[in-house]
Design a protein around this nucleic acid. Structure first.
Lengths: 166, 166
DNA sequence: TATTGTTATACTCTATAACTATA
DNA sequence: TATAGTTATAGAGTATAACAATA
């Protein structure tokens, strides 16, 4: 992950608002970098990643784990190939992830109906329960991490980001 | 970097417009992931990163290299500590980067005027020339990578991203 | 005692080549 | 011949601990 961003003593008060930003003393002039979409997109992603890691550790899920599980939840029978293609993961790097989810009893691997080479991935009941909870937590965490934006601004932000890659 | 996104035979025609997006056949339903700022920010960043890597290889600069060099250019005498703090890099991971830039003759390390422990970083004339060219290339590459957005939309996008982390 | 820069090192993430079994 | 899944492995990125020199 990133550097600084100290592990702030997590507030014991319930619903956390926007997380505190790192105090950078001796600030440098970053005006040129701040004109770049790439730089800013990464900084914003880093913010979300931080909060994601903190709150999703409870589920034992990293971002890619969550993406895979959520994708299987809404695409029962999806194959590794489809997951790789959708998430820009290389097949060798998905193998151990899938194996872990399997051994955790979150997913099931069934023979593919039409293609003997492929394996259809399905959530187990335990997996479905976990994804339901995890998705709620992610929605909340995203809301908190983007609390500086109005709902309208957040929609606009997502729309413009998608215009970049979709 | 990412997976797919084949190395498209780079167009020999001059100014490239928006790069082609990967054709994902057998598409999965990604609607839930697409409601998330984190997911979308990363996808957009991946797009820029791809174009960045392609065009900046000519200068032998990765994103972090460029950030450091550009930062030194606009903050002569900046210290490693300041760069680490600004870019969220851990000190041990900056050492070899700085050493490489030094051995390439792009930067100079001068004793810090007020602090005997610190080292002030400055661009050499060669470094300044490279940064000037590199910054122009980055601006162009960013324009191309965000060509699906109007200039107004691009401004809005950057403003909202900064609202997330600044 | 705290901080800057550094070394050494470990861990994670990403990438490539090659194999197998099916198509 | 091509594709899905896998193995092994290499390389890049990120992390922690500990040290010397200076404050």
């Amino acid at each position: 992950m990133a550097a600084s961003r100290k592990k702030t003593t997590s507030s014991t008060t319930g619903a956390a608002a926007a997380p505190p930003r790192p105090e950078r003393h001796d600030r440098l002039d970053t005006r040129v970098l701040e004109t770049l979409v790439g730089y800013n997109a990464r900084r914003a992603w880093l913010i979300v990643s931080q909060v994601f890691a903190e709150r999703m550790a409870a589920y034992g899920l990293k971002q890619v784990d969550f993406s895979v599980l959520s994708l299987i939840a809404h695409n029962p029978g999806a194959t590794s190939r489809q997951l790789c293609s959708t998430l820009d993961i290389l097949p060798p790097n998905l193998v151990s992830l899938i194996a872990t989810m399997d051994s955790r009893g979150l997913i099931e691997r069934r023979p593919h109906p039409h293609d003997g080479r492929a394996i259809g991935l399905h959530l187990t009941p335990a997996g479905e329960a976990l994804v339901r909870e995890a998705e709620q937590t992610v929605v909340q965490l995203e809301t908190d991490a983007s609390a500086r934006l109005t709902p309208r601004e957040r929609e606009t932000l997502i729309r413009l980001l998608q215009k970049m890659y979709l």
